[in-house]
Amino acid sequence: MKENWWKILASVLVIYSVWSGMLGSVPELPILHETIRNLYFHVPMWFTMVILYLISVIYSIKYLSSGNENHDLLAVECVNTGVVFGFLGLVTGMIWGNYTWGSPWPNDPKMNSAAISTLMYLAYLVLRNSLEEEQKRARISAVYNIFAFPVMIVLLFILPRLTDSLHPGNGGNPGFSSYDLDSRMRMVFYPACIGWILIGVWIATIQYRLRKLQNKQLN
């Protein structure tokens, strides 16, 4: 029970944020209206993705320094899970954009960068599957992963700020926290971010354990 406290916390926070996000009160804002509720789902997906990719990079570095196969397995499972959350971020963003901007893909720099980032990590998975020798595959994919993470950060958080963007917090647009993320929304938004990040880590650890069992059976 003591070891699983964070899993219980993750479940409680996600259930609370989903329930409150659907039924709780939100500010009455022009254009956004009820779609502002998507903030509780869209943004946590991206935060979870970034955290999982960060964990993956850490374990890729550990693998290169130690040669421990488990570090490589954990790195790839974090990427696998991160890609899923990345797709969820894209889908929720497209739904939101369709209601607020009139198009699911209005050629926004941030959305284009997010798509490129997702393709970049899909390429990482393709690279791993294209190499048969285990140690070579682990080393090359670890190096790729280490370089991919800072590129992803630039694409998602730096380039959109240097050009015009519809996204809040980019291209001169104020972020939600600076003008309409009131105390009611913060009480749901922050728990949602923490809860989904923990859920993402939980899923990655389950995938990691399954991958270890599969490798034992093959050996």
Rank of each mutant, 00 (worst) to 15 (best):
L88Q: 06
V143C: 11
D72W: 00
T205M: 06
M152S: 09
Q135I: 15
S113T: 15
S178E: 11
N68P: 15
A115K: 01
G86T: 03
I61M: 10
D182A: 03
R137K: 14
Y124V: 07
L64Q: 13
K212N: 13
S141W: 01
G89R: 00
N98E: 09
Q217L: 05
W101M: 02
T118Y: 06
V201M: 07
L198T: 13
L159K: 03
T100I: 12
I8S: 15
V43S: 08
F176E: 00
I58N: 04
E134S: 02
K110D: 01
L156T: 13
K216F: 00
V43F: 14
N98P: 04
L181D: 06
I8D: 07
E132S: 15
A204V: 05
R211Q: 12
R184D: 03
I194M: 08
Y40C: 03
N4V: 10
Y121F: 10
P160G: 14
H33K: 13
G200I: 07
L181S: 08
R139W: 12
L162D: 14
T205Q: 13
L13T: 05
S103E: 14
H42D: 00
L119T: 01
T205L: 11
A114V: 09
W5C: 10
Y40H: 03
M111Q: 07
E28K: 15
A148N: 08
N70E: 01
N219Y: 06
V43D: 04
A114L: 04
V151Q: 00
I199Q: 03
T118P: 02
Y59I: 12
T35E: 15
Y208N: 09
Q214N: 11
S11K: 05
T92C: 04
L23R: 15
N129T: 05
V154A: 03
I31S: 15
M45V: 11
S130Y: 03
W101P: 00
N219S: 05
D72V: 00
T81Y: 12
C78V: 13
M187R: 15
Y40M: 12
N4H: 07
W6A: 09
T35Q: 13
K212P: 04
A192P: 02
P27D: 14
K62Q: 11
I158D: 02
P191V: 02
I8Y: 08
L122G: 09
L181E: 11
R128E: 11
L131C: 05
N70M: 06
E69R: 04
A148E: 01
A138C: 11
Y208A: 14
S66F: 03
N98S: 12
S60F: 02
R184T: 01
I199G: 10
K2M: 08
S183N: 14
L125V: 14
P104I: 12
G86D: 07
T81W: 04
I197C: 12
N38S: 07
G169V: 06
W202I: 02
T163Y: 15
Y124K: 09
D180E: 09
R37V: 08
M120T: 10
G169T: 03
A192R: 06
Y63K: 01
L122H: 03
W96Q: 08
C193E: 13
L159Q: 07
D108L: 02
L29H: 07
N70F: 02
L181I: 06
T35L: 07
H71R: 11
K212L: 15
I146T: 06
N98V: 12
I146D: 01
I199P: 14
N145M: 08
L122K: 02
I116C: 09
G86C: 03
G102W: 04
S60M: 06
